[in-house]
Design a protein around this nucleic acid. Structure first.
Lengths: 179, 179
DNA sequence: CTATCCATGTAACTAGTTACATGATTCT
DNA sequence: AGAATCATGTAACTAGTTACATGGATAG
């Protein structure tokens, strides 16, 4: 039967495939590595850990600590690795995963009072610039190891995307001024 | 109190602000205009219509038809327009709305058997090319009227994004071959 | 003394998808 | 004969967010 796993399940499995970790560790890890293209909240992580352990794809070990609270460290099982391999090798069905509140608002911006459209574009520009700043920092701090390779690719993807959008924005902002 | 409306609620209000429409009409309309950056399913549309009408933001009129089934045509109310204006003028909070199953899979692609990575990239390329094709067609068929202006902007945004990603992909695919 | 880090969880809610259900008409 | 178009909905489920709850240790 092999219960259905969500993509977030595989995100958790994938991180645990690299190193054993507690829910707390995973949340920090996900925030550093997957947050830009697959955000996973702390709550979701704990939920997935329970579920995946129940399905036998993870095992856990309680690790007592002094000073800080005890932690529960999870490890991926053979079966967990098998499921991960299976998913990773499956063709990726191209369903739309893009949603933009900015474009939605833009579509109805004819109802905006004067100047507000310029504000909206400017806000978008700032958020894109912020993305560029953060991704650039990530790329600069990334070690030059083969393990970091996919992270570098993903960051590059995001950077290119943000830069293209900034170019688009600059043109639209210029057009707004001249009209 | 003013009940919380989701962005999808405003998508429906925004479409009804332009012209009165039935749920069925709206689904077709949304599919032609918002689908690329804010997909709204038929089921969601019917749900929103009921909810927004209950909140007094829409009114409905049953229109008998011959040959085809009767329809229920919705119109936005003054209060609905007020809420729409309010939302459209509010600053857009920059929360991440991007999710990419492709990048997620890419992150864990070290577990792929040889050649599978090339397949994944190729699949992504095809889906980007498809986006380019469809957006180009939309831009070409778009009337040169001021009303179509925001749609043209949104389509341009998508086109630029897809093209930048194709550039990124070409580089990564070339790197994969030379390594 | 206040904030942050460590650490784990539950409960309630919101948003979105998929499957089910019906039925006449018109086009190929 | 079969598919597509028109038209409206419900039910069940999945995924994700936000708020609540606890509590010691350490750094500013």
């Amino acid at each position: 039967m092999t219960a259905e796993l969500s993509e977030t399940s595989f995100a958790v499995l994938g991180l645990l495939d690299r190193r054993n970790a507690s829910g707390y560790d995973l949340a920090a890890l996900a925030d550093r590595s997957l947050a830009f293209f697959w955000p996973v909240s702390r709550t979701m992580i704990y939920r997935e850990l329970h579920r995946l352990a129940e399905l036998g794809l993870l095992t856990s070990l309680d690790v007592p600590q002094s000073g800080v609270p005890d932690k529960r460290v999870y490890s991926i099982t053979i079966e967990g690795r098998r499921r991960l391999d299976e998913w990773v090798s499956q063709p990726q069905l191209p369903r739309s995963e893009f949603r933009s509140g900015f474009l939605l608002k833009l579509m109805f911006s004819h109802r905006m009072p004067g100047g507000k459209l310029a504000d909206l574009l400017e806000q978008y520009r700032r958020s894109l610039l912020d993305t560029v700043t953060r991704l650039t920092a990530i790329l600069e701090n990334m070690p030059d190891t083969p393990e970091a390779n996919m992270g570098r690719m993903a960051a590059g993807h995001g950077l290119r995307t943000a830069q293209a959008r900034l170019d688009w924005l600059a043109e639209e902002q210029a057009r707004l001024v001249t009209d």
